[in-house]
């Protein structure tokens, strides 16, 4: 059996195991895997814009938070069912991305990165201001509903969909154009690529996942407040996962999410105070020492194809 077949077979086995897990797994296990799926979807989404085009988004949690609030408001105030509300959350996040991406992605350079750095704070301020709709600082409680298992499946589908989307993009002409922008934007323009539009498309795609996942997380937790859905720490975790796993690859974000999530649960939960310090150090170390991440190193060592 060729390695590729072996890998595909392994994937099928893992997917099947995850699909039947809720029937005999513990409640804790389901919750932990649900969280892991969430991180895979978030990291994969960040990879779509920052890993592929090289435009760093420092505020991707904004889409997560926007999605969480959209879904929560639709569920509590408009009485929508949660799957529909979460789909709307994805659309809302996409709309927000359009609003920010259109002015900022037409330009080269760090404008986009800094705009994303501020977006989070602004949304938090807005959410606190429109108290009537969002409950302000005291948060928003969703009607009680025991839906952990369905949310587990939808979250898993989201993680799979983001990863599949990354694969489709990386193996397509669209993906090649994005990577050309990353390597040399002037050259990309000279070859006739409409760089602004491509960057914007990648950005819109990267916002949908966090939006839906944010909605799911809101439904799952049953209660949201500005600090719980707009933490800078979430953006940092997404970035660290992708960088560590290998940016611009299909499986890098998955690998990074699994490794960091597991080590977070097992080891770092005991040292919450140095969490950010460690993440900062990982970012610095990865940028300087292994810019291609773990998967990048494996790719070179074992001559894996680019599409891994």
């Amino acid at each position: 059996m060729s390695p590729a077949r072996l890998f595909q077979g392994g994937l099928v086995v893992v997917a099947a195991a995850l699909a039947v897990y809720p029937f005999f797994g513990t409640g804790y296990g389901v919750r932990a895997l649900l969280q892991l799926f969430m991180w895979i979807a978030l990291a994969g989404s960040w990879n779509l814009i920052s890993g592929l085009t090289g435009y760093v988004s420092f505020g991707h949690v904004a889409f997560f938070g926007a999605g969480a609030y959209t879904a929560a408001i639709l569920i509590t105030n408009a009485g929508w069912s949660w799957p529909l509300a979460c789909a709307a959350a994805g659309v809302a996040a996409c709309g927000l991305a359009l609003l920010i991406g259109y002015p900022c992605l037409r330009l080269k350079g760090p404008y986009f990165a800094i705009a994303m750095l501020g977006l989070n704070e602004v949304l938090r301020a807005l959410v606190s201001y429109f108290e009537g709709l969002t409950g302000g600082g005291s948060g928003l409680s969703l009607p009680t509903l025991q839906a952990s298992v369905p949310i587990y499946y939808v979250m898993g589908l989201c993680a799979a969909a983001v990863t599949a989307l990354t694969y489709v993009i990386i193996t397509s002409r669209f993906g090649l154009r994005l990577m050309t922008i990353r390597e040399d934007e002037v050259a990309a323009e000279a070859m006739g690529i409409d760089t602004a539009r491509h960057k914007l498309y990648a950005f819109l795609l990267s916002a949908v996942g966090p939006g839906i996942v944010g909605g799911l997380a809101a439904r799952d937790q049953g209660y949201i407040e500005p600090i719980s859905v707009f933490p800078l720490a979430t953006t940092i975790t997404m970035i660290v996962m992708v960088l560590f796993g290998g940016k611009g690859t299909v499986w890098g974000p998955v690998l990074g999410a699994v490794i960091l999530f597991v080590s977070q649960e097992v080891v770092w939960a005991r040292f919450p105070y140095v969490h950010q310090l460690l993440f900062g150090a990982i970012i610095v170390a990865v940028v300087l020492l292994m810019p291609r991440g773990v998967l990048g190193i494996l790719q070179i060592k074992y001559r894996l194809p680019r599409t891994v």
Partner: peptide
């Protein structure tokens, strides 16, 4: 290095400094 590297590096320094200050 490409912009991505310098932005991420100084971002990493930034969160490390803030956490160090908290500690």
């Amino acid at each position: 290095a490409p912009e991505l590297s310098s932005l991420l590096l100084t971002f990493g320094i930034s969160i490390a400094l803030v956490n160090l200050a908290q500690l």
